[in-house]
């Protein structure tokens, strides 16, 4: 199972997230900073064997994601928002993520969710 993180370069939260994910013993395969680069990278991956983590820090990023929703095909993903503004949350939920979290914590929740998702995919594969 591969974990890919999408984040803005300057997002300081990314290191904290990486640290938490490394605790579950799952190395992050790639970290991507541009949305188009993300889709290029996804073209090379088997979709059922990838989990994406979106670290979203602006509404524009969220809009871009929503516009490209179908390009994610059947890749499972979780979304982490830096703000819990109503519009942001609605847009994020419209993407139908496996989990919607927020960046204002230590990402223990994300680590736990990823852990369960990975275990489940091993059973399903």
């Amino acid at each position: 199972m591969e974990i890919i993180i999408y984040t803005q370069t300057e997002n300081t939260q990314k290191n904290l997230l990486l640290k938490q994910i490394s605790k579950i013993g799952q190395p992050v395969s790639v970290m991507i900073f541009e949305i188009e680069d993300l889709f290029q990278q996804l073209k090379l991956k088997v979709s059922g064997e990838t989990i994406l983590v979106f670290l979203i820090s602006s509404e524009e990023e969220l809009d871009a994601l929503l516009e490209n929703k179908t390009r994610l095909f059947n890749i499972r993903f979780i979304i982490l928002l830096s703000e819990d503004h109503k519009d942001w949350v609605s847009k994020a939920l419209a993407m139908q993520p496996r989990y919607l979290g927020y960046t204002a914590n230590d990402y223990t929740d994300v680590g736990n969710v990823l852990n369960k998702m990975i275990k489940k995919s091993v059973i399903n594969i």
Binding site: S90, L93, A94, Q96, P97, R98, Y99, D109, N112, V113, N115, K116, M117, K120
Partner: peptide
């Protein structure tokens, strides 16, 4: 209106309630 997906298998027990 939306379809809100809750993946009960992905949520650890301590998170389900608040989610």
């Amino acid at each position: 209106a939306g379809l809100i997906v809750v993946d009960c298998a992905a949520l650890p027990e301590q998170l389900v309630e608040s989610v």
